[in-house]
């Protein structure tokens, strides 16, 4: 990945003057904006049916008393928090449903990391909190985070609905049908993947709200 910057900003590694730096930064920024607009748009063909099916399943689960658990690492942990927050405290006139972001409990997170290892943090939380019919949503850009994969595995074992948001080619998360509702954002940029994922789960929330009121 180190060479990414050299590729994106060749001028940084040459002797270009300030004006060139600015012009090239402007051009590359404009490209990135166009890229995310196109990537978001492409999600309709790629995941339209999947989102509709997932929203229907989630609405039925919420109707039967399900809770949603969202989890991820780093920036994906804040996105998981946004996802949970959107469902639990919707903007405007939405219907609140129970949703928790697992990384927000620092006491549990550090206890589990210290005692059993970071790879098991979310899985152990689901083992304690999750019931059959609940919803587990794992976010990862690479699809390779062991704690996210272990938690999805645990959720599946416990009869929970599993939802996965992932980038690149889906990585390990996309293998063996381990996730029931899988949404792959085919990009190699962590930033663009996250920007498409936030739109995907916001749209998923919109569709789930519609399904809840039908």
């Amino acid at each position: 990945m180190t060479s990414d910057f050299a590729m994106l900003y060749p001028f940084l590694y040459g002797t270009a003057n300030g004006a060139d730096v600015l012009a090239q930064a402007r051009a590359s920024t404009e490209e990135k904006i166009a890229e995310i607009v196109a990537l978001r748009r492409s999600m309709a063909a790629l995941h339209g049916e999947g989102l509709a099916a997932c929203a229907k399943a989630m609405a039925a689960a919420f109707g039967a008393g399900a809770r949603l658990f969202a989890f991820g690492n780093g920036g994906s942990s804040t996105d998981a928090q946004d996802l949970a927050q959107t469902f639990a405290r919707p903007p405007a006139a939405g219907q609140p449903v129970p949703a928790l972001a697992l990384a927000q409990d620092v006491a549990v997170l550090t206890a589990l990391s210290n005692d059993v290892g970071y790879d098991l943090v979310f899985a152990r939380q689901l083992a304690a909190l999750g019931r059959p019919g609940d919803i587990a949503v794992g976010l990862s850009t690479s699809g390779g985070s062991p704690n996210v994969l272990n938690a999805l595995e645990e959720a599946r074992r416990r009869g929970m609905i599993t939802v996965g948001l992932v980038g690149y080619d889906g990585g390990k998360m996309a293998r063996d049908g381990r996730v029931e509702h899988l949404f792959v954002v085919p990009s190699a940029s962590v930033h663009r993947i996250q920007e498409a994922q936030i739109t995907l789960y916001h749209v998923l929330w919109e569709l789930t709200q519609q399904a809840l009121t039908e």
Binding site: E30, A34, V37, R40, A44, L51, A52, V203, L207
Partner: peptide
């Protein structure tokens, strides 16, 4: 499906105008 496309289309304007 159409709902998804419509929801995504609503993102195009605000996303594109950032270029300004």
């Amino acid at each position: 499906m159409d709902e998804v496309a419509a929801a995504l289309e609503r993102r195009v304007g605000p996303g594109s105008v950032l270029v300004e």
